[in-house]
Nucleic acid binder design. Sequence first.
DNA 1: AACGTCGGACAGTCAATACG
DNA 2: GTATTGACTGTCCGACGTTC
Length: 253
Amino acid sequence: MTMHPVGGYSSMPMHMYPFPPGLVPAQPLRSKRRQVKNACTNCQKACKKCDDARPCLRCVKYGIAEECVDSQRKERKKGVKRGPYKKRDGKGNSVEQIDVPEQTGIPVPQGMPPPSASPPMPPYMAGPVGYAPSFYGQFPAPPTPKPGDGPAYYPQFYITPVPPPNHNGHGVQEGEPQGYPQPQPQFYSATFLPYAHQPYGPYMMHPHRPDGQMTMPSPHYAPFGPMYGKSPSAGGSSDSGNLGGRAEHGEDN
DNA sequence: AACGTCGGACAGTCAATACG
DNA sequence: GTATTGACTGTCCGACGTTC
């Protein structure tokens, strides 16, 4: 699998984009930075990269998945007077040149973002398939679908070197937070991309979680819905206990 | 090495404005 | 009405400091 930046796969590392085999650009291209629509409060405070999934990669990594909640955006000002705009030319065209990609020289159809560039492969992207199991793979994370969002695909497969554990056997007690099972040595999940043709090798892949839950796009993000419900301490906009204690960048109102 | 902090560049949003 | 502009706002890169 070859990843290239561009973004577009929700919850995928922002600059990564899977190219079908054979369509991989000959040389690395540089993409512009992609941003998530809404970073979680933790990433926001830490000024770190977030992603669309909840919990996001970073929160999962630091074990604060339950505190991973969307940050609140404040409303834009209205009624702000705008200065006089630049006139367009007589044909309704803006007086702007269209950028031609320098690195490839390949003409890019208008309206289509230029193929972009590929930064060095992040460590966790190394290897033939998606994330390293030890990183994001431990949490299957189909992104939370939002109105207006395209289908955020998050193909999931689980690698089970040994038969999957019987999750029921762990006996989730009533009242006990039904957290996603802690990473277990025998049970890794990993994100695979649609084009990946995986050799089965010593592993076995199945599109279902061993505990029987579907892992393909779930409108309600099943694995995390009831499991990572807000903790009492996460009460909405509470800032306490989050990563980074940095004061807000800007003032509200 | 891993993590936190933070300045500031960059990207996305969307109301105001221009235009047909 | 749609298209375009550009100010505003949020994201997060990357440098630096701190802690283990």
